[in-house]
Design a binder for these strands. Sequence first.
DNA 1: GCCATATCGTTTATCGATAATTGATAAAAA
DNA 2: TTTTTATCAATTATCGATAAACGATATGGC
Lengths: 241, 241
Amino acid sequence: MTEDMSELRSERASEAIEFKTGSDTDFVNSPLRQRLKDVLLRRILGGAYKAGDRLVELKIAQEFGTSQAPVREALRDLEATGLVISKPRRGTYVAEVLSEGLREIYAVRGALEEQATRLATVRQSCDLAMLELELQGMRVAAAADDLTSLAEHSVKFHRAIVEAAGNRLLTNLWASLNIETRTTITLLVDGIDLMEAANSHRQIIDAIASGDSERASRVAREHQENFERLPTPNTKLRKDT
Amino acid sequence: MTEDMSELRSERASEAIEFKTGSDTDFVNSPLRQRLKDVLLRRILGGAYKAGDRLVELKIAQEFGTSQAPVREALRDLEATGLVISKPRRGTYVAEVLSEGLREIYAVRGALEEQATRLATVRQSCDLAMLELELQGMRVAAAADDLTSLAEHSVKFHRAIVEAAGNRLLTNLWASLNIETRTTITLLVDGIDLMEAANSHRQIIDAIASGDSERASRVAREHQENFERLPTPNTKLRKDT
DNA sequence: GCCATATCGTTTATCGATAATTGATAAAAA
DNA sequence: TTTTTATCAATTATCGATAAACGATATGGC
């Protein structure tokens, strides 16, 4: 048990960066659980943890120098998003269906955003100017080949719509999918046309502006379905393993 | 701190029933967290905890004779469903928007089940015979005025469709909404015609059977929207308090 | 040799205690 | 009197340790 310490400790140094690099949210709140979740999320999506890998709570806790409790809570959060599966007394594993699971999210996003768009369109509560602004941001980012920026603007775009629906539960659930982190990963897929991806948001704006809630909601869903057909990002990421 | 013990202990006795009465799921898994969540859920939905009430972890832990940890996890689960809100270091409160929140769920269920129905219809993966069976069960229950049974069959009905979609994430999310517990509450509303509620599922079966995924998904969503318009069950429950 | 059973190690689930943070209160200064 | 600051109490977030459960392994009977 003690012989692992050197290895783990050396790894801790490299993880420190990963640990400090807060994605975007305020880091005043629930630091440990939140940050742990973020790191684990990146590792899973990034392929550092392979499908089927077991995640032992105490081991992770030791690695980050924390206690078991926050790790446990982080894992539980991840379980809700389907990225890990934990059987009652048998431990937590990275979902076997990972590549499948990564694709599954688009159907769920589609469902939530379809409804959100419908509600927001009916209520006319969307800040179209802001959406336009984010679209511009996406275009600029796409032109500059800046994945991170593109992802950020995209997330803001979609979040704005979801929030405009005025349904907290819907917003909560959407947020729990960790769209922020996943979006970046999605864009890493080879062969994706960034500018096209950015521009595809135009249709959504137009549909919402038209006031036709059924059309708008359909467009929003189909927007997600487009990504569903792309190859799994994970596969591509593994190339350097 | 010790002077509360007598009161708490006496209350524990009455809660023991509530604590043992497992709704329907297997109780082999994660007993404490699960059961605590269930009890708290019932209290919130049943009105024992009022909107804005503060839920102090240690107090609840003492009440049930457990430690803080499982309570914490239960509360966190509830937070995901929007029934409680917890600010970082300030504690957990029953959502102020409770009556609002209770209604919000229908839009979310609508979103998820709309998509699930669409997918299941396209895949033709629905066990229509089972749906028919559950519908019969609902009719029998409605005739006998058996809320619990009606709720159980209804949940099985909808769950079957959601699972038929073959998207685990979707299923997970749907399950996290605690439909099981909430459905019973919904039916407690005065003035709801149980037989009509049961029969309304017929349309869903028919739509799925028709193979028209767009129609089916729309019917599924509208099915939820119907309940959205009903008065808040919470109000009615208070009558025997 | 094969199957049933007991023991063992590993890991989770839970516990009890501590540290740290927040809001409120009270005291002091202007 | 008002404002500022220091202290307090209450509660969460975290910790370290223990207990219980599960799978695997070893042991004994057949």
